[in-house]
Simulated assay, not measured.
Amino acid sequence: MPPSFKSIRGRLDRAGIFLSGLCAVHCVLGVVLVGVLGLGGGVLLDPAIHEVGLALAVVFGAVSLGFGVRHHGRVAPLVIGGLGLSLMATALFVGHGLPEAVLTILGVALVASAHIVNLRGHRAHASDQHRP
């Protein structure tokens, strides 16, 4: 596999981890600022933010975790990521508040974990190929 492709694949996983973290921060800030302080409801609770975030998560997850299955043959990251994306999608339908925050944070934690497991799978696969 060309080195540039390996670099892109790793960057996609890292971007997925970063975006998961941003999503969790957005969710916590939304609960605190809107629920506790009554600030920013129009912006932080805008459905478009959640829909775009989920779309980005699906794209990064499908591409990087799908490449992972093809490269190292481990399906676990794809399954973990899929479960996380399912929780995130479910959060879009429960309405704003604590249930949405819990589902989203659990979902992004699973998606980030899937990307971490995927990165480790790539490293393990690479080290296995270099052994005599």
Rank of each mutant, 00 (worst) to 15 (best):
L33C: 14
L33K: 01
L33N: 12
V34Y: 10
G35K: 07
G35M: 07
V36F: 13
L37M: 13
L37R: 14
L37F: 14
G40P: 01
G41K: 10
G41W: 08
G42W: 04
G42I: 02
G42H: 02
L44F: 10
L44E: 03
L45G: 15
L45I: 06
L45K: 15
L45D: 15
D46I: 04
D46Q: 13
P47H: 00
I49E: 06
I49N: 09
H50M: 09
G53C: 11
L56M: 10
A57G: 13
V58N: 10
V58P: 06
V59D: 10
F60S: 11
F60C: 11
F60M: 13
F60H: 11
F60D: 09
A62T: 14
S64L: 05
G66L: 01
F67G: 10
F67E: 01
G68W: 02
G68D: 06
G68N: 10
R70D: 02
H71N: 12
H71C: 09
G73D: 03
R74P: 14
V75E: 00
V75A: 01
A76T: 11
A76M: 14
P77E: 09
P77S: 08
L78A: 15
V79I: 14
G81M: 03
G81C: 02
G82E: 03
G82Y: 01
L83D: 00
L85Q: 10
L87S: 04
A89Q: 05
T90K: 03
L92D: 06
L92Y: 07
F93G: 12
G95Y: 03
G95K: 07
H96I: 04
L98A: 09
L98S: 08
E100T: 01
V102Y: 07
V102A: 11
T104V: 06
I105G: 05
G107R: 00
G107W: 01
V108D: 05
L110S: 01
A112G: 01
S113V: 02
A114T: 06
A114S: 12
V117S: 10
V117L: 15
N118Y: 00
R120I: 00
R120C: 01
R120Q: 14
R123C: 02
R123S: 13
H125G: 08
H125D: 13
H125L: 08
H125R: 09
H125T: 11
A126Y: 02
S127Y: 04
S127M: 13
D128A: 12
D128H: 15
D128C: 07
